[in-house]
């Protein structure tokens, strides 16, 4: 087995995904290639229809690619439906935090139960230690209580989701618009938490799926800009945000409200 450090944490080669919708083919991803070194934070930026969410679902093994290869830590995404042990094995490589913090937790499971289950499914702790380990993980994300999701705030729910993902100790953590649904004053808390987690686990590779360039500036080392299923530009965060070259990236950058910003309109075609 090759040393895990030798290969990039994420490697995607010429990935394509075609959906069949009512007899028509819709190309969601039209050939995407990129690599992410271990411990790096990559932002995948795009608007609706860019294919960024489909890409995340493929990386998670929730969607089958039409063609192309996906490798995490040198291991290929298995062919066919991911089930049973293969599903579990893949899940140990990559975990995800979803956008909708109100629907991504089982309404009948408490915070601690949720994290404990993640530990149990992946045999990360003996039965007797599930509860204390779960409480410890929740403490690490700043949550010192145990309650059902409907008595937790949006920010607290997202902390549970992060703790649940970290419980599996994955190589890659995908955050799909993980702060988009949160209040402004809570967003910052979660972004700071993610920065802390990066400091504590330098080997963890982060993929931020987002449309928010301010969030990108705060959390990512590199950026991949997607438009209609293609990568139109990629580079370091500073290059993309301060010196965009592709017209779409430029337009995206100019659309971000900032101090002194004025919106401009074009006629809609």
């Amino acid at each position: 087995m090759p040393s895990p450090d030798a290969s990039p944490s994420v490697s995607v080669q010429d990935l394509k995904k075609v959906f069949r919708v009512g007899g028509q083919s819709v190309e969601a991803i039209r050939g995407v290639t990129f690599e992410v070194p271990r411990g790096e934070s990559l932002a995948i930026v795009g608007e609706s229809g860019s294919g960024k969410t489909t890409l995340a679902r493929i990386l998670m093994g929730l969607e089958r690619p039409t063609s192309g290869t996906v490798k995490l830590g040198g291991e290929d995404l298995p062919n066919g439906r991911l089930n049973g042990r293969r599903r579990r094995r893949w899940a140990e490589r990559v975990q995800m935090v979803f956008q909708d913090c109100y629907a991504s937790l089982d309404p009948r499971q408490t915070a601690r139960g949720c994290v404990a289950e993640a530990l149990a499914v992946h045999h990360k702790a003996p039965r007797s230690e599930l509860a204390p380990r779960a409480a410890e993980l929740l403490g690490r994300v700043g949550l010192h209580l145990d309650a059902l999701p409907n008595s937790l705030s949006g920010g607290q729910r997202q902390r549970v989701a992060i703790a649940r993902a970290l419980a599996v100790a994955p190589d890659v953590l995908i955050l799909d618009e993980a702060v988009a649904a949160l209040d402004v004053s809570v967003q910052g808390q979660v972004l700071n938490l993610l920065a802390d987690i990066r400091d504590e686990t330098p080997d963890l590779t982060l993929l931020f799926i987002t449309h928010d360039l301010a969030v990108v500036r705060q959390v990512s080392d590199r950026v991949l800009v997607m438009e209609r299923g293609l990568v139109v530009e990629s580079g370091t965060t500073d290059d993309i945000l301060d010196r965009p070259t592709h017209p779409y990236t430029k337009r995206l950058r100019e659309s971000v409200p900032d101090v002194g910003w004025k919106p401009t309109a074009t006629t809609q075609v």
Partner: peptide, 17 residues
């Protein structure tokens, strides 16, 4: 709030919700 024009080491957040 994070700002698109520059990165901060840590955001100075308000506690609570």
């Amino acid at each position: 709030r994070p700002h698109v024009s520059q990165k901060q080491a840590r955001l100075q957040v308000l506690p609570g919700r």
